[in-house]
Amino acid sequence: MSIKVYDIAHCRTGDKGRTVNISVIAFDEAKFHYLKQHLTSEKVAKDFSPIAEGPVSRYELPKLHAFNFVVENMRGGGVTVSLSQDIHGKSLSYLMMGIVLPEN
């Protein structure tokens, strides 16, 4: 059995050039701790590798039961010069929410 980030959290993407940030906000404290254990920056870097070189940094906001992931070096060069269809990376929150994690 496995679960998706989508099942236990909500996310939003923001962009700044070649770097994007994606928040992951757990629905409750227990899910926050689960994500803290399994949704590591290494795991996110691996699942984002088709579109970003990385590195990926993870910041924790325990009061909000949230994380902020910062993904650097998007392939194609970011909003101002990217040839991608979604130059702002606005859809990337759903790549994050599609990540599959093992069940505890």
Binding site: H10, C11, R12, G14, D15, K16, T19, N21, S23, I25, S57, Y59, L61, L64, A66, N68, V70
Partner: peptide
């Protein structure tokens, strides 16, 4: 929920 999402919008190191 809407506030949390917008708080972290386009923020890097919080």
């Amino acid at each position: 929920m809407t506030c949390k999402e917008q708080l972290l919008y386009e923020i890097h190191d919080p």
